[in-house]
């Protein structure tokens, strides 16, 4: 059975997919988003974090089997609510074999499986695993290539290609998401680019997430410095404005 690095497991999660879900956070991500709210998820190895004065290790190696046992504990809740498991991160596709084991395990147990991805992974991997995924949450950030490079460490060519091929192959299980980071992803140009991208891909809906500064203590706890400090006081309004702007461009917005 495949093994992988997990940094958190959350039961009764209700904002990432339908029904009552268990959220599995896989550790390790190729991107380095400046506003990341889970910076402890980025490195693909266990690391130390100082919390409440004590050192804690984040990330533990787990068997897919053990993760699946944990997930299966709440299967009755999934059945009655139409829920399941959501694999998030980090970037789940960054541990493809582990993810495959988890997805196959869910499929054989009849558990609905969602994956939240940043889209930065080889197309082969994503398309190979696609049949095992019941729902994709695809986190879009900024569309300008240079900006993307600046804020996340990579340009977005691969991401956009993957997005388009998933949209072509399985539009019904693709849910685009956008975190509205004030001053970064909420500018007019980015939003109209998003609308255009969605329309071009034949999609009409997007989930908007409000930026929240929960991650800022974690950067400190990791002994690292956040690369930007968006003004959290503006995030509520930024979300509303972004929703208005996108709606005007024919996109239906939903805040999960």
């Amino acid at each position: 059975m495949s093994r992988g690095l997990v940094f958190d497991l959350q039961r009764y999660a209700v904002h990432d997919g339908p029904g009552i879900r268990t959220l599995v956070f896989l550790k390790g991500c190729p991107l380095r988003c400046a506003w990341c709210c889970n910076p402890e998820s980025q490195k693909a190895e266990p690391e130390s974090l100082r919390r409440h004065g004590a050192m804690e290790t984040v990330g533990r190696e787990m068997d897919a089997q053990d993760v699946l046992d944990e997930i299966a504990r709440d299967r009755d809740f999934y059945r009655n609510s139409g829920g399941g498991a959501t694999f998030s991160g980090g970037e789940p596709f960054f541990q493809p074999e582990f993810l495959r084991g988890l997805l196959e395990g869910c499929r054989s147990r009849g558990i609905h499986a969602a994956v939240e991805t940043c889209g930065y992974a080889s197309a082969d991997i994503i398309l190979a695993l696609e049949p095992l995924v019941d729902l994709f949450f695809f986190d879009l950030k900024v569309l300008d290539k240079e900006d993307h490079l600046h804020w996340t460490g990579w340009d977005n060519g691969l991401i956009l290609e993957n997005f388009k091929s998933l949209a072509a192959r399985c539009p019904n299980k693709l849910v685009p998401r956008l975190t509205v980071v004030p001053g970064i992803s909420d500018c007019r140009q980015n939003l109209s680019g998003m609308a255009e991208l969605l329309r071009g891909a034949g999609l009409r809906d997007i989930e908007l997430l409000e930026y929240h500064p929960l991650g800022s203590d974690k950067w400190e706890a990791l002994g690292r410095e956040s690369l930007c400090r968006p003004d959290a006081a503006l995030s509520g309004r930024a979300l509303t404005e972004a929703a208005r702007s996108l709606s005007q461009q024919g996109i239906t917005c939903c805040v999960p």
Binding site: Y12, V14, F77
Partner: peptide
């Protein structure tokens, strides 16, 4: 979700 929780 709340009702599903109660039912379960």
């Amino acid at each position: 979700n709340l009702l599903a929780f109660v039912k379960t």
